[in-house]
Amino acid sequence: MDYSFDFQSVFRNIGPLWDGLWVTIELTLAANVVGLTLGFVLALLIMTRWAAVRWPFMLFVEFFRCTPAIVQIVWFFYCVPMLFDVFLGPMTMGIMALGLNLAAFNAEAYRASIQAVPREQLDAGVALGLNPFQRIAYIVLPTAVRNSIPVLLTNGIGIFQQSALVAIVAIQDLMYQGKTLATQTYRPIETFTIVALVYFAVSFPISQIVGYLERRREVMAS
């Protein structure tokens, strides 16, 4: 291969990549706020005994879990304004698309954790006179969040990586800035190698934390 690597041409113009990284982090954090809160609500709704309430939200979860994230992003950006005459900023639309996608996956993590809450704890809540909302707030929620932390963190890493898809709708995230820089410098190999390393540098420490938490949970359970 007759190719001369020149990473310096990328490092000399690396400023936009840092700007794009901050946009990516903002998208990821906001999407996680949506996904963590809405996911728990969805988990409760799909576990209700009333089928008329349960089925629409089950379909909502399955739709977002069974369709590609890139299709969801494109649909939000192009179809929502046309169908509902709602025009929001690109960042807001990106957060909505990624947040709803994450909420669907987090709902399943929460559901499994809620089902693992010991019946004795719920019975104790009833004996103490706690109403259903108090039992959810003081018994179900803390236990479900604690048990599902490894999965929630893994899903959070996944949405950080999937946020690169918003580049196709011109949100100036890390991937978008990388594509622009590669075009300007004519150095796609060096540029996308650096972009990949940045994604890895952010994701790898969190994945190690997830592994540590899973090992710790296994030790505590044994």
Results as ranks from 00 to 15, higher is better:
Phe57Ile: 10
Val219Leu: 15
Cys79Gln: 12
Ile168Cys: 01
Ala221Trp: 04
Thr193Pro: 01
Thr48Arg: 13
Glu214Gly: 04
Val202Gly: 01
Gln8Tyr: 10
Thr48Asp: 09
Leu102Tyr: 01
Gln72Asn: 09
Asn131Trp: 06
Ile14Thr: 01
Met96Ile: 15
Val33Asp: 04
Pro142Ser: 08
Leu27Gly: 05
Phe105Trp: 11
Ile14Lys: 02
Val195Tyr: 05
Gly20Val: 07
Gly15Met: 06
Met220Phe: 13
Ile159Cys: 03
Val10Pro: 01
Phe5Met: 10
Gln162Gly: 02
Gln121Val: 10
Arg217Val: 02
Phe7Gly: 02
Ala31Asp: 02
Ile70Tyr: 11
Ile46Tyr: 05
Val126His: 13
Met91Val: 13
Phe160Gln: 01
Tyr176Gly: 00
Gln208Glu: 09
Tyr3Cys: 02
Ala104Arg: 08
Val74Leu: 15
Val145Trp: 11
Leu17Ser: 06
Met58Asp: 06
Leu141Ala: 15
Pro188Gln: 09
Ala201Gly: 09
Phe160Ile: 05
Ile139Gly: 02
Leu130Glu: 01
Ile25Ser: 01
Arg12Glu: 14
Leu42Ala: 07
Glu214Asn: 11
Ile46Asp: 00
Phe63Val: 14
Asp173Ala: 08
Leu98Glu: 01
Asp19Pro: 00
Leu100Arg: 06
Met58His: 06
Arg135Ile: 04
Phe63His: 11
Leu174Asp: 04
Thr180Lys: 12
Val34Glu: 05
Val80Met: 11
Ala30Ile: 10
Met175Gly: 01
Gln162Ala: 12
Leu83Asp: 00
Phe40Cys: 03
Thr48Pro: 03
Tyr110Ala: 02
Gly39Trp: 07
Val23Ile: 15
Thr67Tyr: 12
Met91Ile: 14
Ile114Glu: 02
Tyr176Asp: 04
Val195Asp: 04
Asn32His: 02
Arg216Leu: 10
Ile157His: 03
Leu174Trp: 07
Ser4His: 13
Glu26Gln: 15
Ile157Cys: 10
Ile46Glu: 10
Leu42Ser: 06
Met175Ile: 03
Ala221Thr: 12
Ser222Pro: 00
Leu21His: 05
Cys79Glu: 12
Val117Asn: 05
Gln162Ser: 10
Trp22His: 04
Gln184Arg: 14
Phe63Glu: 08
